[in-house]
């Protein structure tokens, strides 16, 4: 009895390690892409894998009312799920000003310039693309991301969209979260977040593929 419970526990820990590793590999590649795009060193935190309620998920993104720039995409293929890259709006401004050489760009002052919008869109494309291609290389699974879509609004209104699929089967969500930050400015305050939310049936596929089921 105690042995089987112990084994079950071990399996769970191993599963968490696998999901953490997915966050690690994905975000490391994305941070490298961002680093070469911005020509500055970008670091990342150790990924966190958590089982959270929908409301706790909003808190992870900074609170339901926090204004953020959010890039969302759906993942289709052998693994399905939702992915977000979330930046606090002040940080999004800094990135876009740097990329476009337009010091006046401000996501808090609509209407936004076309150039700024497409730069943000492109930033989202590049980061989510490098995250997911690393994930695909690591697992050998076919992963087809949808075209990323951008919204600058309250975190709650953005994140809830990614909960739709999961919410039909559960009131909790497993989230693989990785924070990235500008290493020149230190670890204080994570500047951007990746959230990977695999649809529940995909866990089995991931664990099976990586030989930990």
């Amino acid at each position: 009895m105690s042995t089987s419970m112990h084994e079950e526990q071990q399996i769970r820990d191993l599963h968490l390690d696998v999901l953490r590793e997915i966050g690690n590999i994905g975000a490391a590649h994305a941070a490298t892409s961002l680093s070469s795009l911005m020509r500055k060193k970008i670091d990342m935190h150790v990924p966190d894998v958590k089982l959270v309620s929908f409301d706790e998920m909003m808190e992870l993104a900074g609170g339901a009312e926090k204004v953020v720039a959010g890039v969302f995409l759906r993942i289709e293929g052998e693994v399905t799920g939702s992915m977000f890259f979330i930046l606090p709006v002040e940080q999004a401004n800094r990135f876009i000003r740097h990329l476009t050489n337009d010091a006046t760009f401000d996501f808090q002052e609509p209407p936004f310039s076309e150039l700024g919008i497409s730069a943000m869109q492109e930033l989202g494309n590049i980061l989510s693309g490098s995250y997911l291609s690393a994930l695909s290389d690591f697992t050998g699974l076919k992963i087809m991301p949808s075209v990323p879509s951008l919204s600058v609004d309250m975190a709650g209104s953005i994140i809830s969209f990614g909960l739709m699929e999961i919410s039909t089967v559960s009131d909790d969500v497993i989230v693989i979260e990785t924070g990235i930050f500008d290493s020149a400015e230190g670890t204080e305050g994570v500047k951007g977040h990746f959230f990977l939310l695999p649809d529940p049936p995909s866990y089995r596929t991931i664990f099976q593929t990586l030989g930990v089921l």
């Binding site: 009312e65 309250m154 975190a155 209104s157 994140i159 809830s160």
Partner: peptide, 13 residues
């Protein structure tokens, strides 16, 4: 009354 009730960050909800 006198309390109010609120919910935050409605998107497609």
């Amino acid at each position: 009354v006198p309390d109010t009730i609120r919910t935050t960050g409605l998107g497609s909800c």
